[in-house]
């Protein structure tokens, strides 16, 4: 009995220590963002202040970068979802000749090392005038999430029982009405989660705007933070405050959507 107790205490101890270790990197970020000093190293200041947040939130460059981040993330999210929903529906509901092959293709693109495509895309965008445009960034970010969106959506649609749609059709709804009254309302929660996920992924993406944009006024917050970090005479407390403002929405939304994504991701290829 005592042995079992001891074993449990050890488990709790290990996990608690692990969680504490996971918090270590956040210590500097939080302390520094409320600090009047600015320091890349770790010092506990004698007083805490909200000034870094104030400075950041009244600085038009930073506000603009938040705005650019929002536009680019939301635009790309919109594109991915719109282009994913039709194929996902057909993949889930119809059987046709090359279905498995096509699905495998989508799956391969899902795991594609997209970073390596930035060099050719950079050249392609310069050739076509899409380089250094917001629409270019949106188009490319949007296509990157398209395969995984099709995949997750298809798996989620598979969870909506077919017999429900069949029932509605026997009940007198045509294909279109069945879609409007039955399928779409049932898939709304999935869509909501997927929209959040897409937004967070795009919001967190750094390398796409970093490589495809050059004009300072187009840079989204992710790139802005990085250039701030790399600049001379950095106000680290403001950097930390800006990073916190950048991070909190992502973390909150992500935790919210996470559980669902795993379920959808681990679904296999069915029929």
């Amino acid at each position: 009995m005592i042995k079992i107790k001891l074993r449990f205490i050890v488990v709790y101890l290990i996990l608690t220590l692990l969680a504490l270790a996971f918090l270590i990197p956040f210590i500097w970020l939080v302390v520094e963002s409320f600090s009047p000093l600015n320091n890349i190293g770790f010092t506990i200041p004698s007083t805490f202040t909200l000034a870094p947040f104030e400075h950041v939130l009244t600085n038009s460059t930073f506000i603009r970068s938040i705005y650019m981040g929002l536009i680019q993330s939301l635009g790309a999210t919109f594109l991915s979802i719109i282009f994913a929903v039709g194929p996902a529906y057909v993949f889930s509901r119809k059987s046709f000749k090359f279905k498995t092959t096509l699905l495998l293709g989508v799956l391969l693109l899902t795991g594609f090392p997209v970073f390596s495509l930035l060099v050719p895309t950079f050249i392609f965008f310069i050739d076509t005038g899409l380089y250094n445009t917001v629409i270019g960034v949106i188009l490319f970010l949007g296509v990157l999430n398209l395969p995984i969106d099709i995949w997750i959506m298809k798996n989620s649609f598979d969870q909506i029982p077919k017999s429900i749609e069949r029932a509605s059709i026997v009940d007198g709804a045509g294909t279109l009405k069945s879609l409007i009254y039955i399928f779409i309302p049932l898939s709304l929660p999935i869509m909501a989660v997927l929209i959040i996920l897409n937004f967070v992924i795009n919001w967190g993406n750094f390398y796409v705007p970093f490589i495809l944009l050059s004009s300072s006024h187009l840079l989204p917050i992710s790139v802005r933070i990085y250039s701030f970090f790399g600049a001379f005479s950095v106000r680290y407390n403001e950097l930390a405050a800006l990073s916190i403002i950048y991070t909190i929405p992502a973390v909150v939304l992500y935790i919210f959507a996470q559980k669902y994504m795993i379920k959808a991701l681990s679904g296999g290829i069915k029929g």
Binding site: I164, A167, I182
Partner: peptide
């Protein structure tokens, strides 16, 4: 089409909306 046939159907898993 099903809606032109005047049939009602009950499914094994009920298929309630």
């Amino acid at each position: 089409d099903p809606n032109k046939r005047g049939v009602a159907m009950v499914f094994q898993d009920y298929a309630l909306y």
